[in-house]
């Protein structure tokens, strides 16, 4: 049913609330690591999986983790998507490639951007970016202890 918008009164409203989200100790360490161009993960003492970003507990074994290790800044693409549309408050502006990346020596996928390539032609992107492709972290000049201190992961030549 397509009604005409202008036939009815519409109240324009916006809810905006400031938040202060606590990182906790483990993630404070992880994001501090990004400031010095290090990616930290956690090794579970029971299942031996290396999880990244850092965890304070293993989500499968439910034991606390205190084994922090610096993980590789290189890995392979497991899945990816080129985003071409935008919505309100979108924190990353299109076009961009979001990807699941298995960093070398880790046991889960790290979610981040793939960049350093021309994104203007989707068909060209499709020919360039492949699952299994090796990628490497590229850091921003100025780092704030934020996940986007890593600018993106670029293909390893």
């Amino acid at each position: 049913m397509e009604m005409k918008h202008e036939d009815y009164y519409i109240l324009e409203d916006q809810v905006s609330i400031p938040y202060e989200n606590a990182y906790g100790l483990t993630w404070t360490r992880f994001f501090e690591g990004l400031k010095s161009e290090k990616i930290f993960g956690s090794r579970c003492g029971k299942c031996n999986r290396v999880l990244v970003p850092m965890r304070s507990y293993c989500p499968r074994c439910f034991i606390e983790i205190d084994d922090t290790i610096e993980v590789s800044q290189e890995g392979a693409i497991v899945a990816w998507v080129l985003t071409e549309y935008e919505y309100f408050g979108m924190p990353t502006k299109p076009p961009f490639i979001g990807a699941l990346i298995r960093l070398d020596g880790t046991d889960c996928e790290f979610v981040h951007l793939v960049g350093g390539i021309d994104l203007s032609n989707p068909d060209q992107v499709r020919k360039t970016v492949k699952n299994g492709m090796k990628v490497r972290a590229v850091w921003k000049e100025e780092k704030k202890g934020h996940i986007l201190d890593i600018k993106y992961f670029e293909p390893v030549k």
Partner: peptide, 27 residues
């Protein structure tokens, strides 16, 4: 839908429902 994600890490890369489900089917 983006607010379903925590604001520290995943929210920056998962472009709403089309992004995340397209990535799944791509894999």
């Amino acid at each position: 839908m983006t607010t379903v994600l925590e604001p520290f890490y995943q929210r920056f890369f998962i472009s709403g429902a089309p992004g995340v489900f397209s990535m799944q089917s791509q894999g």
